[in-house]
Design a binder for these strands. Structure first.
Lengths: 155, 155
DNA sequence: CTCGGACATAAAGTCGACTTGAGGTCAAGG
DNA sequence: CCTTGACCTCAAGTCGACTTTATGTCCGAG
């Protein structure tokens, strides 16, 4: 099993060394250590990183991604079927995101005619009749498009 | 011109008082002051807030929203046509977001068959061939779906 | 005159996904 | 022996959009 330095992994994956250290700390990837304490990654880390990237693009948080990765078998190397299984559920998520955006756009079309922008009635300023009471943090994207926290019971 | 307290504006708009103070500080809304220093908002602030909300849902940052609001005429009250003009450009943005998500979903469909997730070739882990070198911060959504910084020269 | 409630300010905290910086270690090359 | 470069750790900083907390002020009612 050919081992890679953090610099090599970074060069081949495009993931910064600092991010790789962070991912290891978060349990997304694992590495052995040399006598001197330097990380050595197995080549399989590249596929894991591809998965992480893909999942991020679909909108998953690192917490969700870690949970998904933890369902991979530990004893044998994961197969293409394993990876395909993990990414199958993403389609629904993407469909929902697309539907939400489409709804927003259609609301926009109907709003442009009247310029109403009513807080109560306009589909643009009030999509899904959301009162918006959630924790702090950036919220530039519609709640409909933000990932559902893994602890939530909402499907 | 009937004036509203911050509590009244908050109740009618659903925007928290702390957020209203923040918006005033950021130049998104303006308020006069009573002798005691309390804010008094004109009723027109409700429409402005509706605009802010709608723009946020489309994916604009507060900086971009402020820039848009600054194009409103100062001397006369904005008309429905003014608001419609501002929101007209949003359609293209939404269309682009929808297109990006759809492309991602189609890439997913082709990837699920093979389970490849190659960093180089897979449309999922590498949508748009992006090398991803931008500032810090949360990046859970594809760069394609993130708003373009207003300082950028990309139209 | 005192109390409660609504308001004020300023500074610090929150969230996620990292990056940056300070300071230290290790192996190879000149 | 000294430097260079790649690596290490740990703590703190970054971004956006707010919220939270601490502390203080104003006003009307009892």
């Amino acid at each position: 099993m050919q081992l890679l330095t953090i610099g090599q992994v970074s060069a081949r994956s495009g993931v910064a060394p600092s991010a790789l250290r962070y991912y290891e700390q978060q349990g997304l990837v694992t590495a052995t250590r040399t006598g001197g304490g330097a990380r050595r990654f197995p080549r399989s880390v590249l596929r894991r990183l591809a998965f992480v990237r893909a999942a991020q693009n679909v909108g998953l948080s690192l917490t969700e991604i870690r949970a998904a990765l933890n369902t991979l078998p530990g004893e044998r190397p994961p197969t293409a079927a394993d990876w395909a299984r993990l990414s199958r559920g993403w389609r629904d998520r993407l469909d929902a995101q697309i539907a939400a955006l489409t709804q927003l756009r259609d609301g926009l079309d109907s709003c442009i005619g009247c310029g109403c922008l009513s807080l109560d009635r306009c589909a643009l300023s009030n999509p899904g009749d959301v009162a918006s009471r959630e924790g702090a943090g950036a919220r530039w994207l519609s709640p409909l498009l933000r990932r559902v926290p893994p602890t939530s019971n909402a499907g």
